[in-house]
Nucleic acid binder design. Structure first.
Length: 869
RNA sequence: GCGAAAGUGGCGGAAUUGGUAGACGCGCUGGAUUUAGGAUCCAGUGGGGCAACCCGUGGGAGUUCGAGUCUCCCCUUUCGCACCA
């Protein structure tokens, strides 16, 4: 009897054709059915899928298919984050248009995704560079302009003086332009911002409700928002004797430690503070101007070099401020450790209770006063913990919390200041001086200023048929595109030529999938599907994307487009895909990285690696450790090659079998071969079973002990796999459990009717348990087994609790916590019964011999521990 | 510096509520099959003794009848933030 061989290259296309023919994964809004929206972060169409994509999308697909089998109405869409810088770079390099390059990449990658058999509803595909998508984003922006939630102000960019263009941060390499090599300058130009800071408090509070989000992501977002409570107050400018400035000038400072104000020994302005010139004395003017200039020119590297170090640069302004608590003057300095962008750009300095102030005071010979008593034996440096206040008149003796409260209240009562909450979070700068992005829908008129493009004139379409002249954005270079008329007064006017940050498109695509053809940004279908029940993506998006997307969702909520407060209830961040790296040193001492697929590893008799050679020449190569797959380390693996060699199911299986989703996955060719081997074995076992026959209908009551044991294993496995997939997200242990079951089934070869029935039930279960992970081979085996209907629509198996009951259980017998024997007992055996039987075991007896029994502990049905002394 | 996570065989990892450490897979060893290689199948595989038994989850202490799991101290690694007053 010849069993049909397993050929993934034939099975998979056949099964995929069926899915397509039957519209298997088309999602429709259905009343009365529990919906499940499962979303994987959409890819940038860079040209080809990499292993990170494959892993991400396999995880999402496993969850989707599981919930579909559980009877939920599942939506799993896919789309393209199609705007972005790489398309411009490719356009310059290959002399093509970014749009053409992008669309052709999308074609190719869509084919790759389809070859992997992901259960997407392709009818909802969204491509963010299409005007029918971005017009709604433009409309949202003009609405935000009218609400004052979008505004324009000057902000710094990286300016390449040779190419005469703005550079993205990633285009700045070692402080130089990536193409010109010229030192990058800081330049201030007007740019658009979204007022995310208005939502800072809600974005922070909302995290507490997101129980299905990883704690690490929430912590990162909390830190990023960086809420701190304190007080803001004014200090009058004065001379060294404390005589206040006749012009009545004052400096506002923010502090989280108003309780330490009596320890203020100086104050500091950021170099960019607007009052610097005004307050600087003539004697200090030269020194101050040179310091400001030096700070202005400081590059990112300069900043990093001194950040956090003891070196604190600064200069005296010649002015003093009057400490309202003591009525004493303190010298006013300029220092670059104070940032203009946070608080008021000015601080009171308390070296005794702040390490940065301490370092500055040490550098500049300023006095240090402690206002919180450190514990005995405290040596040097600022003291930041709790303790009783000292040297602080009416605060003395109070603990920090109480002292803060009193000091703040005093400022309020005196009319000098108020309570203040500051956030580290900054408004979101959305202007990019790039071509391949969504045009910012604004018209500049000499008389009317910045005018939003009226809804009826949207979208402002980005021309796609362009050629790059050098590096300049084609729409900036094209006066015809810019030229327009003012929507308000009709006078000649110019369009904005900047485009949006691409995070804008990825901030709302998830909602557009719900109604991709709506003649509005969203329609009522959005509220059917939202919020997302499961979002899957990389941890690298923990802060920016996941913050912007929460923010944008709240903007849409406040515009009445959606009801939910948060876009996604559960979030899973998958780990990186990593691989071995190998290299050789060339003559110049540079490392030549060699792809692991071309390397043969040599091992000793224990299996321990002892060396590695390049297959091509048999010569040794060096092991460079395990690293994230990357071009620079040449350790990437092309999923396309793997799919061609092993089939989609094997690639999918391996990408979730070797570690839990949130951990990094170590790629290994032999691991992939192991996955392939398992599927081939599964195939031949099921086919052999089908050949032998399914037997009679299952009669659970008529089974013998061995058959019952197999059934018990089957139903235990069903329970475990269900829990692993739905609650724990540990697909690796789910797969291990199924493999273990298959190993048992292969050893059980009953030919009688009841045995066949038990096996039939078992294989039908196995095929369904694996269906979310390896859907093609399972679909085929399901139909071979005579399963009813298509597997993608089959019901998830239920664990039969009666079948899981045991007639005997194995107790572990310990003496003083050490394993000495195993004991078969009735389930529910009492301590006394178990102890009596255990005493009879020789090996137990030997350890009890001559000793008195102190205590006997029973963990029912698991363990008996006899404590002797 | 601050914050978070982690450290278990030769390797990836398992042990879910404090209860048999090493599931499952890879690698390795031996055998079968094969003209051979590959593939496949069977058996073994933490270390030391090769028997009883002892040792073993980064290191050290502690709690407990019992600790990979809990507490404290230390070491290491990864990630995030990084002068945010």
């Amino acid at each position: 009897m010849a069993i049909r061989p397993y050929i993934p290259g034939e099975v998979e296309p056949r099964v995929q054709e069926r899915w397509a023919r039957e519209n298997a994964f088309r999602a429709e809004e259905k009343a009365g059915v529990e919906k499940f929206y499962c979303l994987s972060m959409l890819p940038y169409p860079s040209g080809a899928l990499h292993m990170g994509h494959v892993r991400n999308y396999t995880i999402g697909d496993v969850i989707s298919r599981y919930h579909r089998m559980r009877g939920r109405n599942v939506l799993q869409p896919m789309g393209w984050d199609a705007f972005g810088l790489p398309a411009e770079n490719a356009a310059i390099k290959h002399r093509t248009a970014p749009a053409r390059w992008t669309y052709s990449n999308i074609e190719h990658m869509r084919g790759q995704l389809q070859r992997l058999g992901f259960a997407y509803d392709w009818s909802r595909e969204v491509t963010t560079c299409r005007p029918e998508y971005y017009r709604w984003e433009q409309q949202m922006f003009t609405r935000l302009m009218r609400l004052g939630l979008a505004y324009r102000r000057d902000a710094e960019v990286n300016w390449d003086p040779v190419d005469q263009t703005v550079l993205a941060n990633e285009q700045v390499v070692d402080g130089r332009g990536w193409r010109s090599g010229a030192p990058v300058e800081r330049k201030s130009i007007p740019q658009w911002f979204l007022k995310i800071t208005d939502y800072a408090e809600e974005l922070l509070q909302g995290l507490d409700e997101l129980e299905g989000w990883p704690e690490s992501v929430k912590t990162m977002q909390r830190n990023w928002i960086g809420r701190s409570e304190g007080a803001e107050f004014e200090m009058a400018v004065c001379d060294r004797d404390g005589v206040t400035d006749p012009a009545g000038r004052a400096i506002r400072v923010f502090t989280t430690r108003p309780d330490t104000s009596f320890g203020m020994t100086y104050a500091v302005l950021a170099p960019e503070h607007p009052l610097v010139t005004e307050v600087t004395s003539d004697g200090q003017r030269e020194a101050v101007e040179s310091f400001v200039e030096q700070a202005r020119r400081a590059t990112e590297e300069d900043r990093l070099a001194v950040e956090g170090s003891l070196e604190k640069r600064g200069v005296f302004t010649g002015a003093y401020l009057l400490n309202p608590f003591t009525q004493q003057p303190v010298p006013l300095y300029l220092a670059d450790y104070v940032l203009m962008g946070y608080g008021t750009g000015a601080i009171m300095a308390v070296p005794g209770q702040d390490q940065r102030d301490w370092d500055f005071a040490e550098c500049h010979g300023l006095p240090i006063i402690r206002t919180v008593a450190p514990p005995d034996g405290w040596e040097g440096e600022a003291y930041l913990q709790d303790g009783p206040a000292i040297n602080s008149e009416w605060l003395d003796g109070l603990q920090v919390v109480e002292a803060k409260e009193r000091a703040t209240q005093w400022l309020v009562d005196q009319g000098l200041g108020e309570r203040k909450v500051n956030y580290r979070l900054r408004d979101w700068g959305v202007s990019r001086q790039r071509y391949w992005g969504c045009p910012i829908p604004v018209i500049y008129c000499k008389d009317c200023g910045a005018v939003p493009v009226p809804d009826e004139d949207l979208p402002v379409v980005l021309p796609e048929d362009v050629s790059f002249m050098g590096v300049q954005s084609p729409i900036k270079a094209d006066p015809d595109w810019r030229r327009t008329t003012c929507p308000e007064c009709g006078a000649a006017a110019e369009r904005e030529t900047d485009t949006f940050d691409t995070f804008m498109e990825s901030s709302w695509y998830y909602a557009r999938y719900c109604c991709p053809d709506a003649d509005a940004q969203l329609d009522e279908r959005a509220d059917y599907w939202l919020p997302i029940d499961q979002y899957v993506g990389g941890i690298e998006h923990a802060i920016l994307h996941l913050m912007y997307f929460r923010f944008y969702h709240k903007l849409m909520r406040d515009a009445g487009m959606v009801e939910a407060d948060e876009p996604a209830t559960r979030l899973l961040c998958q780990g990186m895909v990593v691989a071995d790296t190998f290299y050789r040193d060339d003559e110049d001492g540079h490392q030549q990285w060699i792809n692991p697929a071309d390397v043969e590893v040599e091992r000793d008799a224990r299996g321990k690696p002892v060396g590695a050679q390049l297959r091509a020449d048999g010569q040794a190569v060096q092991f460079g450790g395990v690293e994230k797959m990357s071009k620079s380390k040449n350790n990437g693996v092309d999923p396309q090659r793997l799919v061609e060699k092993f089939g989609a199911d094997t690639v999918r299986l391996f990408s979730v079998s070797d570690s839990p989703p949130h951990q990094s996955l170590e790629w290994s060719e032999s691991g992939v071969e192991g996955s392939s081997r398992f599927l081939r074995r599964l195939w031949s076992q099921v086919m052999a079973h089908v050949e032998t026959g399914a037997g009679e209908p299952l009669d659970a009551a008529a089974l013998n002990g061995e058959q019952r044991e197999i059934r018990r294993l089957v139903h235990d496995t069903i329970a475990k796999v269900s829990d692993d997939i739905s609650r724990r997200y540990t697909f690796n242990t789910a797969i291990a459990a199924v493999m273990e079951l298959c190993n048992h089934l292969s050893r059980f070869d009953g030919r009688d009717g009841p045995s066949r029935a038990v096996l039939q039930e078992a294989w039908l279960a196995v095929v369904r348990l694996l269906a979310p992970i390896t859907p093609h081979v399972c679909e085929e085996l399901w139909s071979e087994l005579g399963g009813e209907g298509p597997l993608y629509a089959a019901a998830w198996p239920e664990a039969d609790e009666a079948a899981r009951e045991r007639s005997r259980v194995t107790l572990v017998v310990q003496v003083n916590g050490k394993l000495r024997a195993r004991l078969e007992v009735e389930p529910g055996a009492t301590k006394e019964e178990a102890f009596e039987q255990a005493k009879a075991i020789e090996n137990v007896q030997r350890h009890l011999d001559g000793k008195s029994i102190r205590k006997v502990i029973l963990v029912p049905d698991r363990l008996l521990n006899i404590v002797v002394g």
